[in-house]
Amino acid sequence: MSGQNLAQNVASLAIVDYEALVNKDAAEIQKLVHAGQTVGMFYLDLRGARTRAIFDDMPIIFKTGNEFFNLPQDSVEKTESLRTGEERGYHPSKGFEYYEIPRDEFERGNWDLPPTFQSQEERIRRTMRTFNEAIQTVLAELCASVGINIPELSDDFTIPSDTALKLVFKPPIHDAGKVINASHTDFGLATLLWYDEETTQVPVYDEKGGQTEVWQTVPVVEGSVLINVADELAAKSRGGLHSTVHRVVAPPGPKRVRNGILYLFRPYS
């Protein structure tokens, strides 16, 4: 592949500095607003003083997650963590496994982590709060830009919602480039994705705004998480904010275990 074609197949997304956003930097807010109203997907740089602890916590949370997911399927921890009929808790499937921690129950002290995770409870709590504060800051500016006010900005974890931190484990079964999750948009208000491999792709659109069959890879940007506007927020903004079409593919290279953490910010019930 030529250098020109390679460049055309890599998405170029805005990188928004979280510290500047918190400090109400006008240029940074404008960068965020433009991204939310056009592509609907952008990076949030978390290397500032408020959020840098996450870079120590995340590798340990990933390691702990691997210890849990590598337990036998009939282990007590996994069987007791299964939640039939709801997303929270442990869920196995053919292509991946995940463990979802509901924010409202966890913050109220009503959620018991499996024993493997219990030693890292404080890191998990700190990570959840960091992601929640980041999403709240981002959405406050995006909502202000389109003149809407959503009740979730009150940030009251005593009100039930499906907001959650999700740890995802993908075993080494997919060849490079294999589409794992087909083209879709996300349910909810916004999604925050922490990842260290190139697994997300976005479509290329033609001059009339039509989606083509060409996809661009979303690269990893050191020190940043990927955020995208989701369906509920786009609907509340009457289309002023854009819910991003994207898909998930296996990254380049040999088959290997892959990990990810998502923060799913969802409406109050």
Rank of each mutant, 00 (worst) to 15 (best):
R129A: 09
T163A: 08
T130Q: 06
G188C: 05
D156M: 05
R125K: 11
K170N: 11
H174R: 08
I150V: 15
S183G: 09
L189Y: 09
I124F: 02
P151Q: 13
F187E: 05
T127P: 07
T163S: 12
A140S: 06
L142T: 00
D155H: 11
K170R: 15
G177A: 08
R126Y: 03
T158I: 10
L167D: 00
I150Q: 02
I135F: 13
G188Y: 00
F187L: 06
N149P: 02
L139H: 00
A134E: 00
I159Q: 10
D175P: 11
S183F: 02
D186T: 14
S154M: 07
L189D: 01
R129Q: 12
K170W: 07
Q120R: 04
M128W: 05
A190C: 14
L142V: 00
A140P: 04
P172Y: 14
K178I: 11
V138M: 12
T127E: 13
V179Y: 01
D155F: 12
V138C: 08
L189G: 02
R125D: 03
S145C: 01
A164K: 13
K166G: 02
V179C: 09
R125A: 07
N149W: 00
S183T: 02
F169W: 14
G188R: 02
P171E: 10
G177W: 01
F131H: 03
D175A: 05
E152K: 03
G188E: 01
A140G: 10
L189K: 02
M128Q: 11
I148A: 06
E122R: 12
K178F: 10
K178P: 13
G147F: 00
A182T: 15
N181E: 15
V179I: 15
A134D: 04
A134Q: 06
L189T: 04
E152C: 04
Q136N: 13
E141V: 02
A134S: 07
P160Q: 07
F131Q: 03
L167C: 07
M128R: 04
P172V: 15
A144T: 00
A190P: 09
D186F: 03
V168F: 13
F169T: 03
I150N: 05
